[in-house]
Amino acid sequence: MTRITPRLAALVVAAVVVTVAVSWVVGSALASRSEEDRPVALDPAEVAQTTLPDLAPAHGEPELDGLADAAPAAGAVGTVSGPFDDRYSFGRLRLDGAAVTGAVHITSDVSDLLELQVLAGFYDARGRLLATGRATHHLDEDSGHEAHAGPPSELERFRIAAPRRIADRVASAAVGVPVLVNE
């Protein structure tokens, strides 16, 4: 059995007295603050307001400016510049009937590809833009991508079919990447 010595008892009593005194002093200091000095909990929705008057909100799908004027030669698949050109390269571009196929090789890093959109323009024999189409990759974390061994894939294949209403007039195509997000 443990014996409590007078010295230990005095030490415990002193610790309790100091704790009570400090609590009382801090409580009194907080209570004596004026209303404007007291901390206030703020709603972030009310505080974090940013206005950018010259910035128009995004609407629709992202486009590539050069698509309207690309006019690749008949039977060819051209490329159109976009904001991510330094982060990928195209490979195996082909016009197969009324569809363009190819692959995007991500060169920026080896992390998971979260979002990718390839935009294709379809042209007639005179080089006029008839219509556009898109192939979009979204990372689906529930699809079991974690089960794959090794580094994330750096190659994303795509196939973009021309809209049916112009499929019989497609003579060439051009592709570009308006969306590319990786970790």
Rank of each mutant, 00 (worst) to 15 (best):
R165C: 09
A71Q: 05
R3N: 04
Q117A: 10
H148V: 11
T79I: 12
V17T: 14
A99M: 13
H59Q: 15
V16M: 06
G102K: 03
V175Y: 06
A71N: 07
V25T: 11
A167R: 05
P53D: 05
A131E: 10
E63C: 11
S28A: 10
V100Y: 02
S89Q: 14
A73G: 03
T5G: 11
T50I: 08
V177Q: 11
L67M: 13
G150M: 10
E156Y: 15
A70H: 00
Y88T: 09
T5P: 09
H138M: 05
L11P: 06
A41N: 07
G66Q: 06
A103T: 05
D142W: 13
R94D: 01
F84R: 13
R94L: 09
G121I: 09
V25H: 05
T19I: 04
A174W: 03
P83T: 14
S111P: 05
G97K: 15
D54W: 07
D85C: 14
A120R: 08
A9F: 12
A76T: 00
I166K: 09
I160Y: 04
T51N: 14
L119F: 03
T107H: 07
L93T: 12
G133L: 01
P178W: 11
R169M: 06
S34G: 10
T5L: 04
G150I: 15
I106L: 14
L52W: 12
R165P: 11
V104G: 02
D85S: 08
S172W: 02
A149P: 08
A31P: 02
A45C: 03
A21C: 10
D140F: 02
A162S: 07
P178Q: 15
A29W: 02
S81A: 10
L8I: 12
V170Y: 04
S111I: 11
I166P: 06
R157C: 14
G60D: 10
V22R: 00
L130S: 08
I166M: 05
L129E: 01
E36T: 13
W24L: 11
T19P: 01
L116Q: 05
A76H: 04
R38N: 00
V47Q: 03
S28W: 03
G82E: 06
L55H: 00
S28D: 01
A68S: 11
V110K: 15
D69N: 12
E35D: 12
V177R: 14
E46R: 11
E36W: 05
P163E: 07
R38V: 00
T19L: 04
D124M: 04
V25N: 02
F122S: 02
F122D: 11
A161N: 14
S153E: 10
T2C: 03
R7P: 00
A21S: 09
D69E: 06
A135M: 14
A99C: 05
A173F: 02
L129R: 05
S143E: 12
A161Q: 10
E154M: 14
R164A: 15
A161H: 13
D69G: 11
G121V: 10
P163Y: 13
L8D: 08
